[in-house]
């Protein structure tokens, strides 16, 4: 009898935790995509939570401090680690992506302070959603500069 109570209690906790995990995963899942994949999927991903990574093209960075609006364009980089290694490491891949005019590109808009690590050939990992205008609206920006710091802590910016 007592044993039953404990088993029931345990099952109840288990069920609660599974429910918490399942619903929270659904509510906050972010689909990780490359720029190419994003453009291939097109309209089907509009409005979904997305996480996109790309190489920052330095010349396109515009910042308006009055409205704290940051605009820049990223170029497609592969998400496959082995491919990156094969092409000579992240720094080389980012550099090539920026200098290749035929790469798929994506315009990004972000509101907030200008991140310290944002510069040409940085890797940007952006969380946000794709607007109907084809512009990516980022809520969070993570940046990594492999050229100088192989072991850098990526900077975290939150809204």
């Amino acid at each position: 009898m007592q044993r039953m109570k404990f088993v029931l209690g345990g099952l109840l906790i288990l069920a609660a935790v599974i429910w918490l995990i399942a619903t929270s995963t659904q509510a906050s899942a972010e689909y990780f995509m490359t720029v190419e994949e994003l453009q291939a999927k097109g309209e089907s991903v509009i409005g979904k939570n997305l996480r996109v990574s790309g190489a920052v093209i330095g010349d396109t960075i515009q910042y308006d401090p009055e409205t704290l609006t940051l605009k820049f364009t990223v170029a497609h980089v592969t998400g496959d680690n082995k491919e990156i290694e094969a092409q000579g490491g992240l720094a080389a891949v980012l550099k090539e992506a920026v200098n290749d005019p035929n790469r798929p590109r994506l315009q990004v808009v972000y509101h907030g302070p200008r991140p310290d690590l944002l510069r040409n050939e940085a890797q940007a990992i952006m969380t946000g959603h794709l607007g109907e205008d084809g512009i990516f609206y980022a809520d969070e920006l993570l940046l990594k500069c492999p050229t100088r710091y192989e072991e850098a802590v990526p900077q975290q910016v939150e809204q």
């Binding site: 995990i21 929270s24 906050s28 899942a29 972010e30 689909y31 969070e140």
Partner: peptide, 14 residues
């Protein structure tokens, strides 16, 4: 086959 990640809201909520 699709990489899906969860961010801080997942941890906070769960």
């Amino acid at each position: 086959g699709q990489k899906v990640t969860v961010g801080p809201p997942f941890y906070e909520r769960a």
